[in-house]
Amino acid sequence: MKLSDEIINSLSLNLREKIKNIKRENIEEIRLRINKPLIINGNLKDYFYNVKTNSLDRNMDNAYVVTKEDIEQTFQIICKYSIHSFMDDIKKGFITLRGGHRVGIVGKAIVENGRVENIKHISSLNIRVSKEIKNCSDKVMNHIIKSPTEINNSIIISPPQCGKTTLLRDIVRNLSNGSNKYNFKGVKVALIDERNEIAGSYLGVSQMDVGIRTDIIETCPKDVGIMMVLRSMSPNVVVTDEIGTEKDIKALYTALNGGVGLITTVHGDSIDDIRNRKELKNLLDDELFRKVILLSAKKGPGTIENIYDLKEKRWYFAN
């Protein structure tokens, strides 16, 4: 499987020639760091571009070293040669490409009054390849769906790069469209997409299929976004990614008290891991969530390890 033209054409001409013929499935990231090897990450492994064989290699002896010019030209192309037009995105540390692919940006942060106003002297770019895997949520939908119009509030616990965003996206699609398989009619979903990873919106248009009844707030803090949709969009279900603060949890309780269903994710390795973290101590309250879905990458990203029912206090395997 080759990388999309949108990703290839976002690279400097030099890098474009090297990357365009790469054929490797499950490419997740392209890492550019000044004066460091070009790294292609896939299947949780790093590969280097071998300048002698013009192919990917696990050995870095003949790896291509990214230049300052590679970074500068790629950054200009991503910004369509108008950095000022993308300043709001640059301040947040990433730019979303057509197709939903996200480019992370780091360098010298210009901070004024406690807020990042610009990032200069770009030293690294991380192109995260966005992938849509429809029906990957089939193993969990029967646990999430409670009735033809109701859900069990659910939280996904996952370490980084284990497919939680891909799984969450497919859950949103199923809840929004409805599912004959589970006799679910489809409901209004409000998606608070703070990092623009779930819908991958480009110029306000979702690049991923998140369903016909989904309303999206992108690049907005989760607690603020939740309150906005509760006041204006009358959602049946609110979905967020990567809950992590007491403000986020307070906003979830507000939605719950308004009779709204909840689906969210959190970084972690286990239920005990979440319960032992001070800022998340109330997250696994059985009044807030019913089902806990545990992910890993043991059999590749998206491996569903187990499902726990917080009210019944019992484990279920996904199948």
Rank of each mutant, 00 (worst) to 15 (best):
P221W: 02
P221R: 03
P221S: 04
K222V: 05
D223G: 12
D223F: 14
D223P: 07
V224I: 15
V224S: 09
G225Y: 03
G225E: 01
I226H: 04
I226D: 03
M227V: 07
M228A: 08
M228P: 01
V229C: 10
V229K: 01
V229D: 04
L230A: 07
L230K: 05
R231K: 03
M233F: 14
M233D: 15
N236D: 14
V237D: 11
V237I: 14
V238Q: 00
V238R: 00
V238A: 02
V239N: 07
V239E: 08
T240M: 03
T240S: 10
T240Q: 03
D241V: 03
E242F: 07
E242D: 11
E242W: 06
E242I: 06
I243C: 09
I243K: 00
I243Q: 04
G244I: 05
T245E: 05
T245K: 10
T245W: 05
E246K: 14
E246D: 12
K247M: 13
K247F: 11
D248V: 02
D248N: 11
I249N: 07
I249D: 07
K250W: 01
K250P: 00
A251P: 00
A251Q: 01
A251N: 01
L252T: 00
L252R: 00
L252N: 00
Y253E: 06
T254L: 09
T254F: 08
A255F: 00
A255H: 00
A255P: 00
A255M: 02
L256C: 00
L256Y: 02
L256R: 06
N257R: 13
N257P: 08
G258K: 12
G258N: 15
G258D: 08
G259E: 03
G259Y: 06
G259I: 00
G259Q: 02
V260F: 05
V260C: 07
V260E: 04
V260A: 08
G261Q: 09
G261V: 04
L262C: 09
L262E: 08
I263R: 01
T264D: 09
T264G: 14
V266L: 13
V266C: 12
H267Y: 14
H267I: 06
H267R: 12
H267G: 10
G268S: 13
D269F: 11
D269P: 00
D269C: 09
S270I: 06
S270G: 10
D272V: 10
D273E: 11
D273A: 13
I274H: 10
I274K: 08
R275W: 09
R275K: 15
R275Y: 12
R275H: 11
N276E: 15
N276R: 15
N276T: 15
R277S: 15
R277K: 15
E279F: 12
E279L: 14
E279T: 15
L280T: 09
K281W: 13
K281F: 14
N282D: 15
N282H: 12
L283F: 05
L283P: 07
L284S: 01
D285G: 06
D285K: 05
D285Y: 08
D286E: 15
E287Q: 12
L288Y: 07
L288G: 04
F289R: 02
F289Q: 08
F289D: 03
R290C: 01
V292L: 10
I293M: 05
L294P: 12
L295V: 11
L295H: 10
L295S: 13
L295M: 13
S296R: 12
S296F: 06
